[in-house]
Design a protein around this nucleic acid. Structure first.
Length: 206
DNA sequence: CTTGAGATGTTCT
DNA sequence: GAACATCTCAAGA
């Protein structure tokens, strides 16, 4: 094992916890991305849960959607979709296989490969590189080819955060979700308080 | 800080 | 057609 090996992926079992628990627990973990340009990474600071069975905002609410088939698969894989015709958004498939539950990653605090991300997003301020789900997609150079990627693999994975501070429960905020028109009352958005890398209006981030 | 419109392509009605 | 798990830019408070 080389001295500067990157932290290994979380075990597959990690993703079998209840989806709302997973959405909270992913805060403070690190998302890694390996591409031709190099390795980039950031600490997850904002997530949202989507649970098809009871969630009108889910892509698979009511009837299954072909584009969102990945969410019916086993937990621990990536569901990537194209939003508004131009943004690739990244979800972590959760829940029991067949349920269609997932966690949308909405913001990262960049920790590795900031130059690479900045080169992909020339006009974006440093602190905004991964602030918002569409920006994560751009900074990480995601595409539909990443849909279905194994999050226990070596191209796109989530690890414990090296030298992480303990994340006290009171550091985690909860709110309704952003950018949806149905299921707007469900408090399924989770974020780290007072973190400048979190997206959304300030009033939701307390 | 806020609001408002345009971009852009897939999915839904 | 309209809607969409969004972002950028410009203008105003």
């Amino acid at each position: 094992m080389s001295a500067n090996a990157l932290p290994p992926p979380l075990p597959r079992d990690y993703y079998t916890q209840p989806t709302l628990d997973l959405a909270r627990d992913l805060l403070g973990k690190t998302l890694w991305r390996r591409a031709d340009a190099g390795v980039v990474a950031g600490i997850i600071v904002e997530t949202e849960a989507y649970i098809a069975a009871i969630d009108p905002a889910s892509h698979n609410y009511g009837r299954p959607s072909p584009r969102a088939a990945t969410m019916f698969g086993p937990p621990g894989y990536a569901y990537v979709y194209l939003n508004y015709g131009m943004h690739y958004c990244l979800n972590v498939v959760a829940g029991p296989e067949g349920h269609s539950e997932a966690v949308l990653l909405r913001a990262l605090l960049p920790t590795h490969g900031r130059e690479i991300m900045a080169a992909r997003c020339p006009k974006t301020a440093l602190r905004d590189l991964c602030r918002g789900p569409g920006r994560i997609g751009r900074a990480l150079a995601l595409s539909l080819a990443d849909n279905g990627a194994d999050l226990a693999g070596d191209a796109l994975w989530i690890s414990e955060t090296p030298d992480a501070q303990l994340l006290a429960p009171e550091m985690i905020g909860t709110s309704t979700r952003i950018g949806i028109s149905r299921g707007t009352d469900l408090p399924w958005r989770f974020f780290i308080r007072n973190c400048p890398a979190v997206s959304g209006p300030a009033r939701l981030n307390r």
